[in-house]
Amino acid sequence: MIDATHYVVLSLILFCLGLIGVMVRRNFITVLMSLELMFNAVNLNLIAFSFRLSDLAGQVLAIFVITVAAAEAAIGLGLIIALVRLKDTVALDEADVMRG
């Protein structure tokens, strides 16, 4: 029987992949994708626990997470468009006017 621990391990791997993606990709769009990966990892956790507990709360929270992730993606993409208009680039590390 596959128990929740398996899912948690999978979710951990996915989460770390997303986290590393946020840190290593230069392209703002792929960074956004990596963020989505992290949110998916969380959802996997929530739903695995929801099943184990036979409790719907986890699934409901997962729905909220998906919705918020969608909203976040919309704002992120809006920022990308503004960035491209200003600097003609999507490379995240070229936004480095402020430092120190």
């Binding site: 626990f49 929270l61 976040e72």
Partner: peptide
């Protein structure tokens, strides 16, 4: 902020679990 809210959510999921 998005990355940190993912971290926060991961914590919430573990507390739920």
């Amino acid at each position: 902020g998005a990355a940190s809210s993912a971290i926060l959510l991961y914590g919430i999921s573990l507390i739920y679990g």
